[in-house]
Computed example of a mutant assay.
Amino acid sequence: MIERYEVESFLVLAEELHFGRTAEKLRVSTARVSRTIRKLERRVGAALFDRTSRRVELTPLGRALADDLRPAWQAVEAALQSAVEAGRGLSGSLQVAYVGAAAGQLLIGITQLFRERAPDCDVRLREARMTETTRWLRDGDADLCLGPLPVHEPDLICGPPLVREARMLAVPAGHPLDRPHGATTEDLTNLPVIRLRDGTAVPPPLPPGPAADSIQEALTLVGAGHGVLPVGAHTRRYYPRPDIAYVALADAPPLEWGLIWPQSRTTARVRAFTRAATDLVTDPTPTP
């Protein structure tokens, strides 16, 4: 029978395709990961990975095994987590990440309401860059994250939108679009649009500009004249800069914010925190 550590090692390596990162994620040695995979391949009777000095790739058999194992393994983990949660109730701790100052401020109110309802659960807040959120959720460094919606990842759940805000455009101060009546998406067709390194593509036909790791870095690129940046209306309040002008982006859909969490870790604490968030924005002065 296949052992738990063999399944974990195989599925993590199938995702990372790197022995060193897999070992780091599992908190074991690289040699142990290699031994485990070789043992599993002997049991299967064929190679699951093609290895060279430069790359690791799944074989067709390995890819099929990963596709078959992953949902079953997630179901096992979810069942175990449900049993743990049933025993613990709402005690323990929650690690909640957030993207940007505005999300952090909203989380303060959500956390206060949640603590009134679950005083035995410790909530720890941690700011994340957009590029870090999915990794933190998958690695267990965060149980939930408050950030922009939607997130198109099959293993992550997006809760209901908590906040909707108008979209604006950050442009260099004195730019031709720095005008009272604002801009439209048509105005962007000949301008480089700065993007964050979070996997979010600039929608066609807009020309992509340079990439940035954080909102501050992106705004610095805007101020230096390297492009423009679509943002939420809160950015004008939380990131005022003398080299940046924020103009309305009249025909763009609103930006939505909400909680995101891994499907396999939809615990009682996560559900209770999500309910507190929804209650807070529905009635700013709810009673527990």
Rank of each mutant, 00 (worst) to 15 (best):
E8K: 07
S9T: 15
L11K: 05
R21W: 06
T36P: 02
T36A: 05
E41C: 14
R43Q: 15
L48E: 03
T59I: 11
P60E: 11
G62Q: 02
G62W: 00
R63H: 15
P71S: 12
A72P: 08
A75W: 11
A78Q: 12
A79W: 10
A79V: 10
E85W: 00
E85F: 04
R88K: 13
A97M: 06
G109R: 03
P119E: 12
D120M: 06
D120I: 04
V123Q: 04
M130K: 07
L144V: 09
C145A: 15
I157F: 05
C158G: 08
R164C: 07
A170V: 03
L177N: 07
D178T: 03
R179E: 09
P180W: 09
H181L: 15
T185R: 14
T185S: 12
E186Q: 14
E186M: 11
P192G: 10
P192K: 10
G199E: 09
V202L: 07
P204E: 15
P207S: 12
I215M: 15
A218I: 03
V231N: 01
G232D: 04
A233K: 10
Y239R: 10
D243E: 15
L249C: 06
P254W: 09
E256R: 14
G258R: 01
P262T: 04
T266P: 02
T278V: 15
P284Q: 07
T285P: 07
